[in-house]
């Protein structure tokens, strides 16, 4: 019962959503929309569980005075203040909730994203080596495209941006399609294994 019921539910919902794709029948479409709503509702409740686990982990750290416990206060405070302001004073333009979002959350998020420029450089520095023929192809393509995307490439020779464009349109697109087809096939068989209950470690069975 502990594993059979989940596997049965998985099978029924899987088959239903699979078959629904092939029909525009309003009843089936409505059922599908309803299931999508259910999925969202379950997600939000699970988010609450996630928030509780964050609280548990951080309050545990604070009460046990584990290493770095003062930082945990910041996390707990962040959640409580944001939730309090959001539920209490709304999320509209000019609300304190939005003020914190724009002046605290957004700058930090975009700075995290900007770290990528540094990491791109260090990864390229370390990883782009003329080790063998494959690595050479990788290196040379990357350099051509990097040059071809800025005015500098034009200034050296018009051939650079043209080559970059050609590479992206032809050999690069071909490989991308091959990768996507492979991913498609892998996804389909994985999904089939899930629906048929072959793969079920997350449902309590041995896979």
């Amino acid at each position: 019962m502990k594993t059979r019921l989940p596997i049965a539910i998985c099978f029924i919902f899987g088959i239903f959503t699979l078959l629904q794709y092939f029909s525009k029948h309003p009843t089936l479409t409505a059922m599908y929309a309803e299931i999508l709503d259910w999925m969202q509702i379950i997600f939000v409740f699970t988010l609450l569980v996630g928030v509780i686990t964050i609280f548990k982990i951080h309050s545990g750290k604070i009460s046990r005075k584990e290493s770095n416990w003062p930082y945990s206060i910041l996390t707990v405070l962040g959640i409580v203040v944001m939730a309090g302001l959001g539920f209490g004073y709304g999320t509209d333009y000019g609300s304190p909730f939005l003020w914190i979002f724009q002046n605290i959350q957004v700058p930090m998020q975009s700075t995290m994203f900007a770290l990528l420029a540094f990491f791109v450089a260090s990864a390229a520095y370390r990883g782009f080596r003329f080790r063998n023929k494959e690595a050479a192809v990788l290196l040379i393509t990357a350099i051509i495209v990097m040059l071809g995307r800025v005015p500098l490439g034009h200034q050296i020779s018009d051939l650079i941006p043209q080559t970059a464009e050609w590479i992206i349109d032809n050999p690069s697109t071909a490989a991308k399609r091959g990768i996507l087809i492979g991913i498609g096939l892998g996804s389909i068989t994985t999904a089939l294994r899930v629906i048929l209950g072959i793969e079920r470690s997350y449902l309590g069975g041995r896979s």
Binding site: A124, Y125, R126, F128, R129, F130, I143, M146, P151, L152
Partner: peptide, 24 residues
């Protein structure tokens, strides 16, 4: 920005070339 962008691209390319020559 485009000027800065060009300089950074060039810098990354030069770094990669320098690393390769040095490793060789």
């Amino acid at each position: 920005r485009l000027f800065t962008q060009s300089v950074v691209h060039l810098a990354i390319i030069l770094l990669v070339i320098a690393a390769n020559i040095s490793a060789y």
